[in-house]
Amino acid sequence: MATGRTDVPVEVFLDSVTHRVRRRDADTLLALMQRVTGEEAYMWGPSIVGFGEYRYRYDSGREGVTPAAAFSPRKAASTVYLLPGFAEDSELLERLGPHTTGVGCLYLKDLAVVDLDMLTDLVRESYDFAVRSAG
């Protein structure tokens, strides 16, 4: 997620999502992440909806800022961004429902077939980790 926070209103971006399922899922993810984080949504780059901030610093000295929780309604699937490496071994993923993963990414094609309680728990664990790490 190497871009930055923008001033584009989240609603303007979400109104541009034309895929029916991605648009519906974006509304669900927006409400879910606002509830979990207690943060207002903002745009991170042209297509990522972010909540809160996570400041990181690698052993190499490289540092930066990224959303503490985020999602993007991509063409192929909705992407939920979790802290890199955070959820790969999580037992929550086993009970989530149909999904695929990448480094720090959870790809969901249809939230209607996903256990939203498990998704909420995944987002909460990742967000809480980000908040604890920042303190």
Score class of each variant (00 low, 15 high):
residue 1 M to F: 12
residue 1 M to C: 12
residue 3 T to P: 04
residue 5 R to M: 14
residue 8 V to T: 15
residue 9 P to A: 12
residue 10 V to Q: 11
residue 10 V to P: 10
residue 11 E to V: 15
residue 11 E to A: 15
residue 11 E to F: 10
residue 12 V to Y: 13
residue 12 V to E: 15
residue 12 V to F: 14
residue 17 V to E: 00
residue 18 T to C: 09
residue 19 H to Q: 13
residue 19 H to I: 13
residue 19 H to N: 14
residue 19 H to T: 10
residue 19 H to W: 06
residue 22 R to T: 05
residue 22 R to Q: 12
residue 24 R to C: 00
residue 25 D to W: 08
residue 25 D to Q: 08
residue 25 D to G: 07
residue 26 A to T: 01
residue 26 A to Y: 01
residue 30 L to S: 04
residue 32 L to F: 03
residue 33 M to C: 05
residue 33 M to P: 01
residue 34 Q to M: 04
residue 36 V to R: 01
residue 37 T to C: 06
residue 37 T to V: 07
residue 38 G to C: 03
residue 39 E to W: 02
residue 41 A to I: 10
residue 43 M to E: 01
residue 46 P to I: 11
residue 49 V to S: 04
residue 50 G to M: 00
residue 52 G to Y: 13
residue 52 G to P: 14
residue 53 E to G: 06
residue 54 Y to R: 14
residue 54 Y to G: 08
residue 56 Y to L: 07
residue 56 Y to T: 08
residue 56 Y to N: 10
residue 57 R to M: 11
residue 60 S to Q: 11
residue 61 G to E: 14
residue 61 G to T: 15
residue 63 E to Q: 12
residue 63 E to K: 12
residue 63 E to N: 08
residue 64 G to W: 05
residue 65 V to G: 00
residue 66 T to E: 12
residue 67 P to V: 05
residue 69 A to K: 00
residue 69 A to I: 00
residue 70 A to E: 09
residue 70 A to C: 12
residue 71 F to W: 08
residue 73 P to Y: 01
residue 73 P to N: 01
residue 74 R to I: 02
residue 75 K to C: 06
residue 75 K to W: 04
residue 75 K to S: 11
residue 79 T to G: 07
residue 79 T to C: 11
residue 83 L to R: 09
residue 84 P to A: 10
residue 85 G to S: 01
residue 86 F to D: 02
residue 87 A to M: 01
residue 88 E to W: 07
residue 89 D to T: 03
residue 90 S to A: 03
residue 90 S to E: 07
residue 90 S to D: 11
residue 91 E to K: 09
residue 91 E to H: 07
residue 91 E to S: 09
residue 91 E to I: 06
residue 93 L to R: 10
residue 93 L to W: 11
residue 93 L to C: 10
residue 94 E to K: 10
residue 95 R to K: 15
residue 95 R to P: 10
residue 95 R to W: 14
residue 95 R to N: 14
residue 96 L to K: 05
residue 96 L to T: 02
residue 97 G to E: 06
residue 97 G to N: 08
residue 98 P to V: 07
residue 100 T to S: 13
residue 101 T to N: 01
residue 102 G to P: 07
residue 102 G to R: 08
residue 103 V to G: 03
residue 105 C to Q: 15
residue 107 Y to W: 14
residue 107 Y to F: 15
residue 107 Y to K: 14
residue 108 L to E: 04
residue 110 D to N: 10
residue 111 L to T: 06
residue 111 L to A: 05
residue 114 V to F: 04
residue 114 V to L: 03
residue 114 V to P: 03
residue 115 D to Y: 04
residue 116 L to C: 04
residue 116 L to D: 03
residue 116 L to M: 08
residue 117 D to H: 02
residue 117 D to E: 10
residue 119 L to T: 13
residue 119 L to A: 12
residue 122 L to F: 06
residue 122 L to M: 05
residue 122 L to N: 03
residue 123 V to R: 00
residue 123 V to D: 00
residue 124 R to V: 04
residue 125 E to H: 13
residue 127 Y to N: 00
residue 128 D to V: 11
residue 128 D to I: 07
residue 128 D to M: 12
residue 128 D to F: 04
residue 128 D to K: 11
residue 128 D to W: 08
residue 129 F to E: 14
residue 129 F to H: 15
residue 130 A to Q: 01
residue 130 A to E: 02
residue 130 A to N: 02
residue 131 V to A: 13
residue 132 R to F: 13
residue 133 S to R: 11
residue 134 A to V: 14
